[in-house]
Write a protein that binds this DNA or RNA. Structure first.
Lengths: 112, 112
DNA sequence: GACATTCATTGATACTTGTCAATATCCATT
DNA sequence: AATGGATATTGACAAGTATCAATGAATGTC
């Protein structure tokens, strides 16, 4: 298992966790959320929330801003753009007209 | 670490791997790909490809169809729809007009 | 300064996952 | 049925990760 460097994979990996997806969804709804408010929605201890926020920060999903005692988190618009770009690129694929299908069936072997 | 059941998280987790993302991208480009053609693009052994294809199958990303000796894979349109739906739901969040920002700054504590 | 609160870090532990060698299974051809 | 090629499965191992208790660092209040 080699460590990830592809930024797209990093973005997906960061979102692919129930706690972090819940965080992203709450941020999508509220726009800005204090770190102390995430413990309520996610049913995990404070260090765990802090860990997940770090993952989201380092993957580019969120930014934080200190205001006195509290730290407010919000989603980076750039991450949303990148995520939607990936969603646009992944598609069911090129159309397969009958001629192409027939060619594939009669071909001696798949393309190398 | 409790096992995942949320289908959205499962979909993201399945895509959040370099090999599997490469598979999805090749399927997006070519529409339909023979299992034997994935070993070339991903630089991993055949059992590893088979393992990743299984993950993509069980998470709903792809379907397979046997044609004689070869098995052809393609992306499920439904998975694409779900993925794009998630991409649409995650956003930088509600707008923060000056009044809201001022209220947040002067508030004694974050909303509980 | 002393104290309380918020958030981050450290360290330990249990669980999950990506990988491959070896083997099995399925299909087509001879 | 015997052989060969394409995929899947099994088993084992190394590496990654989610979690929390304990602790540290920063800020605000008294």
């Amino acid at each position: 298992m080699r460590r990830q460097t592809d930024p797209d994979v990093l973005l997906l990996q960061a979102a692919a966790d129930p706690t972090r997806l819940a965080i992203l969804r709450q941020l999508s709804t509220d726009g800005e959320v204090c770190a102390c408010d995430f413990t309520a929605c996610c049913d995990v201890a404070q260090p765990t929330i802090s860990h997940h926020l770090k993952v989201l920060r380092e993957s580019g999903w969120v930014t934080s801003e200190r205001r006195g005692t509290w730290i407010w988190y919000s989603i980076c618009p750039d991450a949303v753009t990148r995520f939607r770009g990936m969603a646009g690129e992944i598609s069911p694929g090129a159309p397969r007209p009958a001629t192409v299908l027939a060619a594939a069936l009669s071909a001696p072997a798949p393309a190398r």
